[in-house]
């Protein structure tokens, strides 16, 4: 392959993977925006979403679309339960305690998955026959198109929910000022639950799409994409929804380019390098604003 063809190919691959990072990043960004907590267990919800999809397809013999919807629904439920059990009691505790709890929740879900589903990877069923479509000097696969398509639809739905519905308006109000929202009669607990449900369902969709893309799922698959999704959220500006989308696409592309033109062992280091650079140079992210602590 010529270098430019390789470049185009890697950008396509990167954007496909990046669209999943965007889905994960959206969950991080919404939860952080509303309760100022890095939900470390978000990556595990993504992983469990992939497993839910796996069982929906293999056991219930469902097709991809219904499996996706069932998995998203189950993940929403899981997100709500997680928030109620692990995070809600600590809402007014020091942030260090909440963060430790989040790490604990992440570890717990990971080990629980390992016990339930086994530590080895499972091959993800091939529901969609593989096809390649020529795109100039490069190719795009039908699976990549599905990834783009599903991610895009979900993002549009999310945008409509957040911008044009009552509950979306309440979400925005809670993220601006929890106390004020409470005084306006908004049920803050319910909004927080809803936010977790929304974020978790997006992560689950991402999990299934990646399971389909790589043909395999395992209990540890959530950790790195979780951290990358978080990086994407920070890169775009945490709390900013369009930022998470842009951040995810940049992350996916950057990662694929480094793998193609550098070394694959540095794949995961790219994410961290980007994260640290953003945190140090522009902690507010690309689309965010920086905040100063009030004295």
């Amino acid at each position: 392959m010529e270098w430019y063809a390789l470049l185009i190919q890697q950008v396509i691959n990167g954007l496909a993977l990046g669209s999943v990072y965007s889905l994960i990043a959206l969950g991080y960004t919404m939860v952080y925006g509303i309760i100022k907590l890095i939900n470390f267990a978000h990556g595990e919800i993504y992983m469990l979403g992939a497993y839910f999809g796996f069982y929906a397809i293999t056991v219930w013999k469902l097709h991809l679309a219904p499996a996706l919807i069932i998995s998203m629904a189950l993940a929403s439920l899981l997100g709500i339960v997680l928030e109620r059990i692990a995070y809600k009691p600590l809402r007014n505790a020091p942030r260090i305690a909440a963060l430790i709890t989040a790490i604990g929740a992440s570890l717990f879900l990971q080990s629980a998955a390992q016990f339930t589903f086994g530590a080895n990877f499972k091959p993800f069923p091939q529901v969609i026959p593989f096809k390649r479509i020529a795109l100039g000097p490069a190719y795009i696969t039908n699976r990549q198109l599905i990834m783009f398509g599903v991610a895009l639809i979900l993002m549009v739905v999310l945008h409509i929910i957040v911008q044009y519905t009552r509950v979306g308006r309440a979400m925005r109000a809670v993220s601006l000022d929890k106390e004020a929202a409470m005084l306006m009669g908004i049920n803050v607990d319910r909004i927080i639950s809803f936010t977790f449900a929304l974020g978790s369902s997006l992560a689950a969709a991402g999990g299934i799409l990646v399971g389909m893309y790589y043909n395999r799922i395992d209990p540890y698959m959530g950790m790195m994409p979780g951290l990358k999704g978080f990086t994407a959220a920070v890169l775009g500006g945490i709390g900013v929804i369009p930022g998470a989308v842009i951040g995810g696409l940049i992350m996916g592309t950057a990662e694929n380019l480094v793998v193609a033109f550098g070394s694959s062992t540095f794949r995961d280091a790219v994410a961290f390098a980007i994260l640290i650079l953003v945190l140090l140079l522009k902690p507010g992210g690309l689309l965010g604003k920086s905040e100063n602590e009030k004295v």
Binding site: L37, F230, F272, L275, P283
Partner: peptide
């Protein structure tokens, strides 16, 4: 550089540094 960050941002940045050391 990292200690300019606070709380959870610092946690994530140190996580990143640790993993970069490992990847190197």
């Amino acid at each position: 550089p990292a200690l300019r960050l606070r709380g959870d941002y610092l946690a994530i940045a140190t996580l990143g540094f640790g993993e970069i050391i490992r990847v190197i």
